[in-house]
Design a protein around this nucleic acid. Structure first.
Length: 457
RNA sequence: GCCAGGAUGGCCGAAUCUGGUAAGGCGCACGCCUGGAAAGCGUGUUCCCGUUCGGGAUUCUGGGUUCAAAUCCCAGUCCUGGCGCCA
């Protein structure tokens, strides 16, 4: 959320943000409402001052025993009370309107962020790991086919148990997921100075709003009880779409000490997304599913440090891929593609060599987004009321929040299964993951069970 | 889930029974004092609106009673203790 002060003082900046981010909000209406509210506020304050005066007078008169004068004063006070009620009722309505409108204003992009409409205007800033890449089989089998052949990914049973868009990882597939999670957590803890957090998976509406998910993205969330179309209260529960939501909200409505900062938390959780309207060949397999594991990095920093930290966070995300030896690229998001709450954002995309896509690299295959690294500046902090006190005698200020995936697990599984694929259809386990898989060096698959396996060539 | 107690500024803590300007202490900043410091003294230390200055709001949240609510009533949230249940 932007501050009222900021919107009032610099409507031009807000207008630019609306334009470059492609958001349609009635800014003029908001400014008018604010102006009207301020008038009413002054009027109400004045009435209240007069009422307070009368009230004090009554106290004095009563003490002096002048009941007659007191009765007269009580009557005057009653009149003021009625007037005041009318003015303040209107002011309250306006303030609620104002608050609602403010929640719909997007964050203002960083001045250096590339301006553009959609993903085609994003700017590639880095590409890693293509020069000395591994030799691949002549024909790389896509992970969804290989996963079924090896019986490490089971889509049919995932759909049976939970529905389309869910999968079951089995045997070495399941172990690979666990290994990746543990490997990432260890890396960030020991080398990037992160403190682990294991948060609740259901989060309340207030947390969803604090992280900037609501009210805009209600239809993407899984609601615990009730229908998404029904009205919701602050304490209604939703399955988290990213650990960013509970972790950012841990310090909601708190004032942190200057010495506490920076705070670096990492959290592994499953993530739940409805992915309404996302279908097609690009989503076969485990590239886009309703539940996936992710290690999320969340930072709380002093405002002056946030842009240095953004670069640091990007390095912490890409470190995962570099350790695993997986080629990737980094994109700087343009204004139209960076999202509602972000001021600046990078995407990290890993190379999955199997399915040739028009937008993929020259080497073939496609890019898969595994991390999105963002600086929210004070946008989330203001929504969620997270402040810090620079000096003990000074008033509290909103701090800056950042986060980045560190990283999303299933898409790394895709990259591993395709990039580390051998000619014989087995998969090489990247060196750093072996200790987490009991020394397993290669994924050779398991025996399928059940009658459906009997007739399977 | 039931019963009891509790929530007051950055922190601690009085006022609550008996409605009438929210004590005091700590921390921190600035000033005075000092050769310099400590101590001492003074001022400041939440948010909002309007220019200094002023005004308004603010005792967990939301309602109610009252001319007037930290104080009385109702509902809720969280914390503590006891009982019950339970992976």
């Amino acid at each position: 959320m932007l501050s009222r002060q900021f919107v009032r003082d610099d409507p031009e900046a807000v207008r630019r943000a609306l334009e470059t981010k492609g958001v349609d909000v009635d800014l003029e209406g908001l400014l008018e409402t604010d102006a009207e509210w301020r008038e009413l506020k002054a009027e109400g304050d004045d009435l209240r001052r007069r009422r307070n005066e009368v009230s004090n007078e009554i106290g004095e008169l009563k003490r002096e025993g002048d009941d007659e004068a007191a009765a007269a004063a009580i009557e005057r006070s009653g009149e003021l009370k009625e007037e005041l009620a009318a003015v303040e009722k209107r002011a309250e309505e306006l303030e609620a309107d104002l608050e609602r409108a403010l929640l719909r204003l997007p964050n203002v992009p960083h001045p250096e962020a590339p301006v553009g409409d959609d993903e085609s205007d994003n700017v590639e800033t880095e590409r890693w790991g293509f020069e000395d890449r591994r030799e691949l089989p002549a024909e790389v089998t896509p992970h969804y086919d290989l996963g079924e052949e090896l019986d490490v990914l089971d889509f049919e049973r995932g759909a049976k148990v939970s529905g389309g868009g869910f999968y079951v990882a089995k045997g070495e597939g399941a172990r690979l997921e666990h290994a990746l999670v543990q490997f990432m957590l260890d890396l960030h803890r020991t080398e990037h100075d992160y403190t682990d957090v294991f948060p609740p998976i259901p989060v309340n509406s207030a947390s969803m709003r604090g992280a900037g998910q609501f009210p805009k993205f209600v239809e993407d969330a899984y609601r615990v009880g009730g229908d998404n179309d029904e009205p919701y209260d602050d304490d209604d529960l939703w399955l988290l779409p990213t650990a960013e939501v509970p972790v950012t909200n841990m310090y909601r409505d708190e004032i942190l000490l200057n010495d506490d900062l920076p705070i670096k938390h990492q959290a592994y959780t499953p993530n739940f997304r409805r992915e309404a309207g996302e279908h097609g060949t690009e989503t076969r397999g485990i590239v886009r599913v309703h539940q996936f594991n992710k290690v999320e990095l969340v930072n709380f920093v002093r405002p002056e440090d946030s842009y240095d930290r953004l670069e640091g966070l990007l390095g912490e995300a890409t470190a995962v891929l570099e350790r695993l030896g997986l080629p990737y690229r980094v994109l700087e998001m343009c204004t139209g593609d960076m999202g509602f709450a972000q001021a600046k954002k990078y995407d990290v995309e890993v190379w999955a060599p199997a399915d040739d896509m028009p937008e993929g690299p020259e080497a073939g295959g496609r890019w898969l987004e595994v991390s999105s690294v963002s600086n929210f500046e004070d946008f989330q902090a203001r929504r969620a009321g997270i402040q810090y006190r620079p000096e003990q005698h000074e008033s509290a200020e909103y701090l800056h929040t950042l986060n980045g995936s560190g990283v999303a697990v299933p898409r790394v599984v895709v990259a591993v299964m395709e990039y580390y694929q051998n000619d014989d259809g087995t998969v090489e386990v990247p060196e750093p993951l072996r200790p987490y898989m009991g020394g397993t060096e290669r994924i050779e698959g398991g025996e399928k069970v059940g009658e459906s396996a009997v007739g399977d060539g």
